[in-house]
Design a protein around this nucleic acid. Structure first.
Lengths: 248, 248
DNA sequence: CGTAGGCTTGAAAAGCGTCAATAGGAGTGG
DNA sequence: CCACTCCTATTGACGCTTTTCAAGCCTACG
């Protein structure tokens, strides 16, 4: 039974948040859900929409985005396999932002009332969900600081470090290389820069020998310490303590 | 009994998040706690510190802040009466940021295990707490967009609008005027600008007749619509739906 | 083989930061 | 009550990071 559920990544993520026993895991895997494929550029949720599902990322990359008054897009969070993209919609009826697929993604849609029921029936799972929300908040705060108080070079290096660690935790990278299927424009929207400047900045980092791009949309760092220092990166805010630190 | 508890603002806030019955309210007010006064500039929690308390704001203004590699400070959230400042510390053992008093503040320190117990014993309160966390996350995301994709003028007007609404909801402002006990330097750290530029920008807004400062550290807007439009402000992200909209 | 989307690069402009100096107000001690 | 100090607000001049605009290039794909 366990093996066959698409919700395995959810059980895995929540296990990182708080130790769960077999029954908790089984209850998670038994949640009713509906697997859906969403094409790049399409939306999982749109701002101001009423939602009745929460959704779990199974593959690909998605982003929470907001469009400001000038029409520019801000990417306020990025999500990969195992992330609960719409947990907030379990309790907040009206979406305060959109979620769009940055690549073709697979998600599992879970009815919100089932999530609420699960959180109540199994307090330990409820705590894990709450805790997951808190970790997400922590990442969001780091992003505020990143965009608000770091220059382009540091800012970009910082998100690249964050992605390295998170992809590794999700089991999507090992060694010193990872695939980052985001365009430079998407990176720009995630860092509060322009695509042009992201391009220049990445190339500078490359020139300085801090990173390589072995093939398009891939990042490789030969010296983690060096890039982490440039990016003013310290994984504390990812709260991986229930897990071995992903990258030394 | 109810009247005399210092935790009344917490019960009030959580009631906004989800409808609570008399027993839920009583359970909240009965939480063990310890009221403490903290002077301006002092810290409630410091980054990387282990915490065993969550804390509720009773008066004054506090800020969650992070210091980046260059030594610059980023204010990633601002809190007023009724806000649960350290809810994340109930479940995340190591603080990922500092909380400092921007004015002299009064807080109620509540042991984290008591909060966890309460959330478990009274599911409706647990949901309210979770929901409060989600709303905070929503505000944080708006801040990422604000700092990342709005220019100085819009950005500043936006936070001034947010404060207007939140202070009103907290019962700390009515009419078209409110006291904002933050220095321009603190505003700068909250908007990713410099104090000098905050000064110039505020004065521009004043010159344009969008706001007045009747006395130091006070903001008055004669035309809410106008300032909200300049600030690209829409209170949707504050999720005040259990409450009448504070400002039309 | 052509088109579209993304990447790359240059030149110039603009917004915001830095540095520096002055002024105002609140609190303190004589 | 005045002198002093510290902190905050204000303003100017200047410089730099980042943006804007524009063009060319590469690659994937139909």
């Amino acid at each position: 039974m366990e093996q066959s559920s698409a919700l395995e990544p959810m059980a895995r993520t929540l296990s990182y948040r708080i130790k769960l026993n077999a029954e908790d895991r089984a209850a998670i895997l038994a949640l009713p859900h509906d697997v859906r494929t969403i094409e790049r550029g399409h939306f999982v949720v749109r701002e101001r929409e009423k939602t009745i599902h929460s959704c779990l990322m199974l593959s690909g990359v998605s982003a929470r985005s907001k469009i400001v008054g000038t029409g520019h897009r801000a990417i306020v969070a990025v999500h990969v396999k195992g992330d609960m993209v719409d947990l907030q919609n379990s309790l907040l009826e009206v979406a305060d932002h959109s979620v769009e697929a940055l690549t073709t993604i697979k998600v599992a849609m879970i009815p919100r009332n089932e999530i609420i029921r699960l959180a109540e029936d199994r307090p330990q799972v409820g705590r894990a969900l709450w805790r997951d929300t808190l970790v997400e908040g922590s990442i969001s705060r780091e992003w505020v600081a990143n965009v608000g108080r770091r220059d382009a070079r540091t800012r970009l290096a910082h998100v690249l470090c964050e992605f390295a660690v998170r992809l590794r935790v999700a089991g999507l990278a090992d060694g010193d290389e990872y695939e980052l299927p985001m365009t430079q424009e998407q990176l720009a929207d995630a860092t509060g820069l322009t695509a042009v400047h992201v391009n220049r900045t990445i190339r500078t980092l490359e020139t300085e020998g801090l990173l390589e791009r072995p093939y398009p949309r891939a990042i490789r760092y030969s010296d983690w310490r060096a890039i982490a220092e440039v990016g003013d990166f310290d994984s504390n805010y990812l709260h991986l303590n229930h897990h071995e630190q992903a990258v030394a």
